[in-house]
Write a protein that binds this DNA or RNA. Structure first.
Length: 729
DNA sequence: AGGTTAGTAATTTTT
DNA sequence: TTACTAACCT
């Protein structure tokens, strides 16, 4: 019955069995955090302390939610259904649909993504005569989001906090934006939390209802919660205080998104009588990796303090390698050849990852891996919902559910092209504004009044009658058929079928996937929530590929081998982080380094290049301070890091040319120079040859300029490629 | 209305 | 360097 408890160590077991009252579980990296959380959840159910729908379990990512659901099911031995388990946003959306009226919305409100948000903010700025060229809309979006993160409605913002943007009009713009959202019957991501917290704050009977409902609350990644999430949790936990938060202050890396480490640091004050359990036995990494990570993070102040110790029996291992390279290209070659070496030794690529500070850094590694023929995947990037075709399709569906959704209307009004441009749209806008009606209704009335003519009138009439018939169809035949019909009859799929660009087939596939996914939902509104809050791109995890991703993206993952390139001052720690947030920024960068190191089970290879190409020109850089902070006994330093540093100090003149000077290059090991030289062209590739490129596929050479080939690729069109990247087909 | 070109800005992004 | 936006031309 309780066999699942036997698999836990003493501290994990304490975390699972301390069920009453507030509990903070400080879970160091690799200490079995997820196991504790899921076992605790299952334990609550198995011991009959609560029914599945009486436990509220909150995560930050859909992935974490999914994983928890699966693992709870596995322990229970049956599918876990009826759970309140999900992300903050998904759970709030679900609640807010029930109480939308309290904050002036209808329950079918639309959820806006950042793109809609930005467009709306820009419109609000223009309507309030704030020049959107002088004041950047994205900056305002950031300000508004931070306010929302802190649970601040416009009326709660003090004048003192409103001085920077638009000469102190940010608060007014925020208020106008919120009004506009209400008119559109829409909420942005931040609103989901903000509105729900507001409702719980002001409506005691609704709060009481949730108090009766949720007997236990579980929270993952508590160090990443922001103020409004904290307030929401505190309100919900108020009565019984059965709240268990799991987190690691050393892994707090999202302060720039409004996360407050203080939440976890303050837990015992916020929840009097709280118990604290520390999970310190690490089952993931070797001793040297743990030692290096611990030594590094010890440089931070204001930590709750944990001492990771090894829980593995086989924890001895190689020291953390620190490799100094000449330039970023050599760094990419080093990573590539080490991967090849490991692969020859029987290691799987899926167990190797390159973790970079910023997205653009992956490119250099991609190029190298392509030339070496090492399969890889870039993790992160665009999510399913963010793709243009999905957003367009969703806009059509949103309008079906909610005709007042002007943002959706604007998005699709001329997609596909209907000859409705700026001029026509402006006419609609001015009528809509003057009469306080949605754009769709404005269009209808202007057509009836004969104010619109020609092509515009024709295509708008067609679109409007389309929507009318689609609504009927939905009532009759359901949302799946309707969605497919909408995409067809609106001309949207035809638009992509006619598109000759190489990604058009993929987009059509995505649309098919969207319609297919509709089958899993009873209603269209339910599906729309799923798409904007949950749906992700499916990745083919089957193939053996190395992973390239940002350090942020790597949180929660682990690999046998982890490459940590670019440990240079200015890049990592990032200059901007330090400039904007001073020591706090630096400490967060250090936590990021800590997260990176602790992803590794067996091997961690840190590297830094003396020269790096930023945009067009070369810049020299010095090794990251984090390298010096790694305890020497756990590190094996190779390469000319020290030498480079001294050399640069004695020779302040850096290169002005496009490539490092040969004279300094001699300082490198003999092999380095050889490897740097351009490999001789194996076979001449004349014009007209059919060639193959790892990334772009097959193509025909149309022109040759020394080592550069103009190639017309069959899939992706014309490109200029260095000859060594292609082979004769 | 829609395509073309010049100018400008360039972290991290769980929802 | 590239990618995206905004004014500009057809």
């Amino acid at each position: 019955m309780t066999a699942y408890l036997d698999r836990l160590n003493a501290e994990q077991r304490a975390a699972v069995e301390t069920l009453d009252g507030p509990l903070l579980v400080l879970a160091g990296a690799g200490t079995g955090k997820t196991r504790v959380l899921t076992t605790r959840f299952a334990h609550i159910l198995m011991s009959n302390r609560a029914f599945p729908n009486q436990v509220l379990a909150v995560t930050f990512t859909n992935k974490a939610a999914r994983e928890m659901r699966e693992r709870v099911s596995a322990i229970l031995g049956r599918p876990a259904e009826g759970l309140w388990l999900g992300t903050f946003h998904a759970l709030c959306a679900r609640m807010l649909r029930r109480h939308a009226g309290v904050v002036g919305l209808e329950s079918n409100f639309s959820i806006l993504d950042t793109d809609d948000q930005l467009r709306l903010l820009k419109q609000v700025m223009e309507a309030n005569h704030v020049d959107s060229k002088r004041w950047a809309p994205p900056a305002l979006m950031g300000i508004v989001q931070r306010w929302k993160d802190r649970g601040l409605t416009p009326d709660r913002i003090t004048a003192a906090e409103d001085t920077d943007f638009a000469s102190g009009h940010a608060r007014a713009l925020y208020a106008a934006y919120q009004d506009r959202l209400r008119q559109l019957n829409a909420a942005d991501f931040g609103d989901l939390l903000l509105h729900m917290t507001e409702i719980l704050r002001t409506q005691p009977e609704i709060l009481a209802q949730y108090h009766r409902m949720f007997r236990y609350i579980l929270v993952d990644e508590y160090q990443d919660t922001n103020v409004v999430q904290y307030l929401w949790l505190r309100l919900l936990a108020q009565s019984h205080q059965n709240i268990c938060c799991v987190g690691d202050d050393d892994q707090s890396i999202y302060s720039w998104r409004g996360a407050e480490v203080e939440n976890i640091l303050r837990f015992e004050k916020d929840f009097p009588g709280a118990r604290v359990v520390r999970l310190e036995a690490n089952y993931r990494s070797t001793d040297p990796i743990l030692g290096a990570a611990a030594g590094l993070i010890a440089h931070n102040e204001g930590r709750l303090g944990k001492t990771l110790r090894s829980g593995r029996n086989d924890a001895s291992g190689d020291k953390v390698e620190v490799v100094g390279l000449w330039d970023s290209e050599e760094e990419a070659r080093m990573v590539g050849s080490r991967m090849e070496q490991l692969r020859r030794d029987g290691h799987s690529l899926a167990e190797m990852a390159v973790l970079v500070r910023a997205g653009f850094q992956t490119r250099a590694f991609e190029e190298r891996l392509i030339t070496l023929g090492i399969p890889y995947r870039v993790v992160g990037g665009q999510r399913f919902y963010e793709r243009a075709e999905i957003r367009d399709a969703v806009a059509y569906l949103r309008l079906l559910v909610q005709p007042a959704d002007d943002l959706a209307f604007e998005r699709i009004i001329n997609v596909p092209r209907r000859g409705v441009g700026d001029v026509a749209l402006r006419t609609l806008h001015s009528y809509a504004r003057a009469n306080s009606v949605p754009l769709m209704l404005a269009a209808e009335r202007l057509i009836a009044a004969g104010e619109l003519r020609g092509r515009v009138r024709e295509s708008l009439t067609e679109l409007l009658s389309g929507f009318a018939s689609w609504r009927e169809l939905m009532a009759r035949d359901g949302h799946v058929v309707t969605a497919a019909t909408v995409l067809d009859e609106s001309g949207y799929t035809a638009m992509w079928k006619a598109d000759k660009s190489p990604d058009a087939p993929g987009r059509l596939d995505n649309l098919k996937e969207l319609v297919r996914a509709l089958n899993d939902f009873e209603t269209l509104p339910g599906f729309l929530d799923h798409v904007s809050l949950v749906m992700e791109n499916e990745e083919n995890t089957d193939a053996d590929r190395a992973s390239l991703m940002t350090l942020h993206g790597a949180k929660g993952l682990e690999f046998d081998t982890v490459f940590l390139p670019g440990w240079e001052e200015g890049l990592f720690p990032s200059q901007r982080s330090m400039e904007e947030n001073g020591n706090k920024g630096l400490e967060e960068e250090r936590r990021l380094a800590y997260v990176g190191l602790t992803r590794a089970r067996q091997r961690a290879i840190v590297s830094h290049a003396a020269n790096r190409r930023i945009y067009a020109n070369w810049q020299s850089s010095i090794p990251s301070r984090f390298i010096e902070e790694l305890p020497a006994e756990h590190v094996n330093q190779t390469g000319a890091a020290r030498l480079e540093r001294e050399q640069r100090l004695s020779q302040p003149a850096i290169f002005t040319g496009a490539f490092p000077l040969t004279a300094t290059r001699v300082r490198q090991s003999p092999g380095a120079w050889e490897a740097t030289a351009r490999p001789p062209r194996a076979v001449a590739i004349p014009v007209g040859s059919r060639v193959f490129h790892q990334k772009f596929g097959y193509g025909t050479v149309t022109a040759v300029d020394d080592d550069r080939l103009d190639i017309a690729f069959e899939q992706t069109g014309p490109k200029r490629i260095l000859d060594r990247f292609v082979e004769k087909a």
